[in-house]
Simulated scan of single mutants.
Amino acid sequence: MRSLRDFTSGVGFFFQGFGWVARHGRWWAFGLIPALIAFSVYVVALIFLGTNANDVAAFLTPFADSWSWRELFRTLVGIALFLGGLALAVVTFAAVTLAIGEPFYEKLSSAVDVLAHEVDQPFWRTLPRSIRDSLVTLFYVLLFTVPLFIMGFVPVVGQTVVPVLGAAVSGFFLTVELTTLALERRGMARKQRFALLRANKASALGFGVAVFVLFLVPFVAVIAMPAAVAGAALLVRNRLAPVPPGPATPA
């Protein structure tokens, strides 16, 4: 029962993030800039993958050249490749957007989560570490999602259990990415952040799954990105690593 309450609470923090950026419209507009840049890159990449999926499938399946049903098989492989690319885009969108817009989202997170004392480092020093941490997170994502992708071809299980597990895995790692800014400002390294989120798994899953589901909708990910950053800051401030209330949030 407590896990369910924590999961629901995690979902609630995402919507609290929407409420915060709705009350502070200039911060929402500020956070849309890197999200739009990343979205444009992903759209181009997915269009390219979609238009060349059959060619890629043919390249990957030379063993099927003699099959009478090779065209059907390669069409299915092409569809699977595109869906896999789409899922990867959803999972990595937050990481790429945060890397592109770290100065933007650092300011947004700081406005939501005001700290009297925080670990402050220049952008040129934090960017390489952020990229490295994102690559480590991506490795863990692939470690889980590749087997799930293969299991997706199993009848019944692939259409029921796998999507739920995929949403949970993707949601957790989205929370990992989105809470990085607020937790780094508290001086927490990657291993400490992972340990904290594992200890609060239900809240992390609730927040991340809500983000993941909305990020599946085209263009909604762009609109929701500033809210996700704000919600992650609120999740950290009020649940994961609480601090005494700071001064009034800037309007």
Rank of each mutant, 00 (worst) to 15 (best):
M1Y: 06
R2F: 07
S3Q: 11
R5A: 13
R5W: 10
F7P: 00
T8D: 04
T8Y: 06
F13Q: 04
Q16N: 09
Q16H: 08
Q16P: 00
F18I: 14
G19M: 06
H24Y: 05
G25W: 13
R26W: 13
A29I: 14
A35W: 06
I37G: 02
A38Q: 03
A38N: 08
A38C: 13
A38D: 06
S40I: 13
Y42D: 04
V43I: 12
L46H: 04
A53I: 03
N54Y: 12
V56I: 15
L60M: 13
L60E: 11
A64S: 14
A64W: 11
W69Y: 09
R70M: 06
E71V: 09
L72S: 12
R74H: 08
L76H: 05
G78W: 02
I79N: 04
L81P: 03
L83C: 12
G84D: 04
G85M: 05
G85A: 04
L86K: 11
A87H: 10
V90Y: 03
A99M: 14
I100W: 10
I100G: 10
G101P: 02
P103V: 04
Y105H: 11
V114D: 02
V114L: 14
V114G: 00
L115V: 08
A116F: 11
H117R: 07
E118V: 06
D120T: 13
Q121F: 07
Q121V: 14
P122E: 09
F123E: 08
F123N: 08
W124H: 14
L127C: 03
P128L: 10
S130T: 14
R132C: 09
R132E: 12
S134R: 02
T137K: 12
F139H: 06
V141S: 04
V141Y: 09
V141E: 13
L143C: 11
T145H: 05
F149I: 05
M151P: 00
G152A: 07
P155L: 08
P155G: 09
Q159W: 14
Q159K: 07
V162P: 04
P163W: 10
V164N: 08
V164I: 15
G166P: 01
A167Y: 07
A167I: 02
A168R: 00
V169D: 01
V169H: 03
S170I: 01
S170A: 12
T175I: 00
V176H: 00
T179Q: 02
T180L: 07
A182S: 15
L183H: 03
R186T: 03
M188A: 08
A189M: 09
K191V: 05
L196M: 12
R198Y: 13
R198S: 08
A199H: 09
N200R: 15
K201D: 00
S203L: 13
L205D: 02
G208R: 00
G208Y: 00
A210N: 00
V213I: 15
V213F: 04
L214T: 11
L214P: 01
L216E: 07
V217Q: 10
V222I: 15
A228Q: 01
A232P: 03
L235Q: 00
V236F: 05
R237S: 12
R237W: 11
R239P: 00
R239K: 15
P242N: 06
V243I: 13
P244C: 02
P245C: 06
A248L: 13
P250D: 05
